[in-house]
Simulated scan of single mutants.
Amino acid sequence: MTPHHHIVVLGGGYTGLAAAKLAARRTNAAVTLVNARDRFVERVRLHQLASGQRLRDLPLSQLLAGTGVRLVVDRVTRIDLAARAVHLAGAAAPLAYDTLVYALGSQADPHSVAGVAEHAHSVTTAEDADRLRERLATSGSVAVVGGGLTGLEAAAELAESRPELTVSLVTGGALGDGLSRRGRQHLRRTFDRLGVTVREHATVTEVRADGPVLAGGDHLAADTVVWATGFRVPDLARDAGLAVDEHGRMLVDETLRSVSHPEVYGVGDAAAARRQDGQELRMACATGLPCAYAAARAISDRLAGRQPRPLRFRYLMRCVSLGRGNGLIQFVRADDVPVEAVLTGRLAARYKEAVVRSTILAERHPALIGVL
Rank of each mutant, 00 (worst) to 15 (best):
L361H: 11
A20M: 03
H219N: 04
L10W: 01
A272F: 03
V320N: 06
L10R: 06
V73Q: 05
A89E: 15
E164W: 03
R39H: 14
A362P: 10
A295D: 11
M317P: 04
A296Q: 12
G11F: 02
G216Y: 12
R184K: 04
T287P: 09
V31M: 11
L361W: 09
A23K: 02
V76T: 09
I79F: 09
R238V: 02
L343Y: 05
A50C: 10
T77I: 11
L100H: 00
V332Q: 00
R70L: 02
R131E: 13
Q307L: 08
L316N: 10
A243C: 01
Q185A: 06
L311G: 09
A222S: 09
L49E: 14
R184V: 01
V233K: 08
R45Q: 15
D218T: 13
G90M: 03
G195H: 00
L46S: 09
A294L: 04
V355L: 12
E246R: 15
R364G: 06
F313H: 14
R188Q: 13
T224E: 12
P366D: 06
A298Y: 01
L60W: 02
G248N: 07
N326P: 05
D253C: 02
P234T: 01
G370F: 03
A89C: 01
G345I: 04
A270Q: 10
R162N: 14
L136E: 12
R37Q: 14
I79H: 10
G217N: 09
A103D: 09
